[in-house]
């Protein structure tokens, strides 16, 4: 019980269960490796030996059914966008999306004459965290993941949401 002593106040049980769930869900998000382009190389470099993603609890999973977080790394094209939507729908709740890189955020350097480029992956899936950069450094991606962890922790999955 050492973890929970003096951590939570004398509250009703639901609140501390919320926090317990938030802590459990955020600290080991398994990511769905959805590397598309150059940002995928930086994602692989983040998962490799120098900037280790395993220390924040993330392992790459190739199947959407086993993953919690989808890191969209790279440019999404029109041809690919239908598949992104399909894969997002195949993931199990709770699921989150990180848009990594400026191509996934808003079309990137291809925004002007890219007839085949989707101007931001948020046109097809709801995005939780945007990580800017072209490509973002591994440290930026890790900061984005930590921000996602904060966001997950602040969710209240058990309280009834009124209107």
């Amino acid at each position: 019980m050492g973890v929970f002593e003096n951590k939570f106040q004398d509250n009703i049980v639901v609140a501390s269960l919320d926090k317990l769930l938030g802590w459990a869900r955020s600290t080991s998000p398994w990511f769905f490796q959805f590397g598309l382009a150059c940002c995928a190389i930086e994602m692989m470099a983040t998962a490799a030996s120098r900037h280790d993603l395993m220390r924040i609890g993330m392992i790459p999973r190739s199947s959407p059914r086993q993953a919690d977080v989808m890191i969209v790394a790279g440019t999404v094209t029109m041809k690919m966008s239908l598949r992104v939507k399909k894969l997002y729908e195949q993931m199990a709740n709770p699921k989150y999306v990180i848009a990594m890189g400026s191509c996934a955020t808003s079309g990137g350097p291809y925004w002007q004459h890219g007839y085949h480029v989707l101007k931001g992956v948020d046109l097809v899936v709801p995005v939780d965290v945007y990580v800017p950069g072209c490509p973002p450094r591994p440290e930026s991606l890790i900061e984005g993941l930590l921000k996602l962890q904060e966001k997950i922790q602040s969710e209240r999955p058990l309280t009834r949401k009124t209107a």
Partner: peptide, 29 residues
């Protein structure tokens, strides 16, 4: 390009199509 794309992009008189499967193609923001 996808099989149901319209037009020949690298021609000089190419006009981008408005939507593709419901997603808006040209710059939106």
């Amino acid at each position: 390009l996808p099989d149901d794309w319209e037009g020949w992009p690298l021609r000089k008189d190419y006009e981008v199509q408005e939507t593709y499967h419901g997603i808006v193609v040209p710059k939106v923001k």
